[in-house]
Design a protein around this nucleic acid. Sequence first.
DNA 1: TACCTTGTTCGACATTTCACGAACAACGAA
DNA 2: TTCGTTGTTCGTGAAATGTCGAACAAGGTA
Lengths: 120, 120
Amino acid sequence: MVFVKQAQHPELEEMTLVAVMGAFSDPIRVGLVRVLADGRERGWGELRVPVAKSTLSHHLRVLRDAGITRTRQEGTRCYVKLRRDDLDARFPGLLDVVLDAACGDDVGAHVGVDHAPPHA
Amino acid sequence: MVFVKQAQHPELEEMTLVAVMGAFSDPIRVGLVRVLADGRERGWGELRVPVAKSTLSHHLRVLRDAGITRTRQEGTRCYVKLRRDDLDARFPGLLDVVLDAACGDDVGAHVGVDHAPPHA
DNA sequence: TACCTTGTTCGACATTTCACGAACAACGAA
DNA sequence: TTCGTTGTTCGTGAAATGTCGAACAAGGTA
């Protein structure tokens, strides 16, 4: 397996439909996207997910590699946010459709977020 | 992703976002959906897919179990078509988004169809 | 009846995915 | 420097997925 030290964020043209659909095909990842839907950047520590931290790291990487989220590092902390504009440009309407469906069905409801201010 | 062994055609309420996204996360299945996008019913024999017939059977089953297509049997032949109205009702806009993206990127371009009339 | 066509199911296999804990590296704080 | 926090990577394992060929069942045809 080829591991890039810091996984890359794909450019617009590099995002593929199949990768994005695959990323949305897991309830935990859909839950994460729901949490990020308000556009605010979140510290990973804020995320409340019922899996081990290594597994969370995995899911966040799948989202990042698909181009759905953008990760920023600051010291030892990582922050993540939705690439809403990029997604809307690449696959117009997709994010809204997914969010509507996910909220209606409560997909990924076991994913939450602490509301402590990241930059307090 | 999770595919149930005996599931047939799910009702509207039984369609899940995660299953539909999983079904769209394979280029062959996206290609099949593209072929069916014109709404016409197709005999399986018409479908030109570069995989063994058992593999085609598998992919068509994933699409059917997710609620994306409907299969009808007539004698020894099977016919398949898109459940466009059901999809639009359950996940409004999703199919159009996927078809737009798939056609723009030529996802599943290796999937084709013979245009010989099934009942000639 | 025997044969052919069509699609399903099975067994096998390789690959991928998801999950965990442990070890590690990087950084900030004491 | 030493320690604690944070996220990545590794090793492992279970489960799912994609693929094939072979065997099978159902239905039409000779």
